[in-house]
């Protein structure tokens, strides 16, 4: 029994997702350990992003159960919740493979939007806000402080009032993580956070993710192709191929798994010959 099975923050059980005749995910089960960095890897088209979309409510799974265990002891069945409640109540935040920032809004505004729900409450659903009551002003100041903290952590504080669309690519990736963190998540789902980053930015990203995990009681589930990120920071790696789990374990275990090597690099010619003989080709 591995560490992630004893105290999971997210449990995925028998998850199946079909798009018409196409089975994108087939009977997938794994656990995401509390406080772990869990990597979901696999070749292109393996169904990684589909898993994310199921977890964050953008898809409704065909079968299976996704349970979020919050640290306060509450359990949420994510497959039954509308997407916005998954973020608001179950505290699962995500980033996107193709960055989705609010480009025409400043960095600070992006982070303020992420704190919409607590601020909305504090503004008395806008009534207290219109009259500028002190309680709302204080909540707003706190929200700005939180935003400032995350801008600081992601080295974006100098450009706080610049529009998000003006940022270089790497900065946009970091801003998306900062924005997700501003919603106060317990599980952070990152869809290829290192895609398009140079080695230096990749290293900074590793440091940032480890900082988040250590300081903020946030578990991280990430999809990644960049093996330097995966192998260096992941506690637990789940490998998907054609919608099925082919390997599950620590980074070192997975690296040496012949199934994983076969999925990524293909199999030796002799092996193909044996299989072809078996099926009579």
């Amino acid at each position: 029994m591995s560490a992630w099975d004893t105290n999971p923050v997210l449990t995925i059980e028998h998850l199946t997702m079909r798009f018409g005749g196409l089975v994108a995910i087939d009977d997938l089960s794994f656990n995401v350990g509390r406080g772990d960095i869990t990597a979901l890897i696999g070749p292109n088209g393996a169904g990684k992003t589909t898993v994310f979309n199921c977890v964050t409510g953008f898809y409704k799974p065909t079968e299976g159960r996704i349970v979020m265990n919050r640290s306060n002891g509450e359990h949420y069945l994510l497959e039954r919740m509308p997407d916005f409640q998954i973020s608001a109540q179950a505290k699962v935040a995500r980033t996107f493979q193709n960055i989705r920032l609010f480009g025409g809004m400043t960095l600070l505004e992006n982070l303020m939007v992420a704190q919409h729900n607590p601020l909305m409450l504090a503004s008395g659903y806008s009534l207290a806000g219109i009259f500028g009551l002190a309680s709302f002003r204080k909540a707003e100041r706190d929200a700005v402080e939180k935003a400032r903290y995350w801008l600081d952590k992601t080295n974006l504080i100098d450009r706080a009032d610049a529009p998000a669309a003006d940022l270089p690519y790497g900065d946009q990736r970091r801003l998306e993580i900062a924005r997700a963190m501003c919603s106060g998540p317990e599980l952070l789902c990152l869809d290829e956070p290192a895609a398009g980053l140079n080695p230096k930015e990749s290293a900074e990203l590793n440091a940032l993710l480890q900082y988040i995990r250590k300081e903020h009681d946030t578990s991280i589930l990430l999809i990644e192709h960049d093996m330097s990120v995966v192998m260096e920071i992941s506690d637990h790696v789940v490998v998907l191929d054609y919608g099925e789990k082919i390997s599950d374990g620590s980074a070192a275990e997975v690296k040496d798994d012949p199934k994983v090597i076969a999925a990524y690099l293909g199999v030796p010619d002799e092996e193909v010959d044996t299989v072809e003989e078996e099926v009579g080709l």
């Binding site: 953008f58 409640q85 995500r94 480009g103 939007v113 992420a114 919409h116 806000g129």
Partner: peptide, 29 residues
């Protein structure tokens, strides 16, 4: 002008920018 500076106004503008991102941040679109 007042609402623009409140969470609801920012949510409107965020909605104009990217609806999917809004939903991922827990905004009831």
């Amino acid at each position: 002008m007042r609402l623009r500076k409140l969470p609801v106004g920012r949510a409107w503008e965020a909605l104009r920018e990217d609806e999917i991102a809004c939903r991922s941040l827990g905004i009831n679109t």
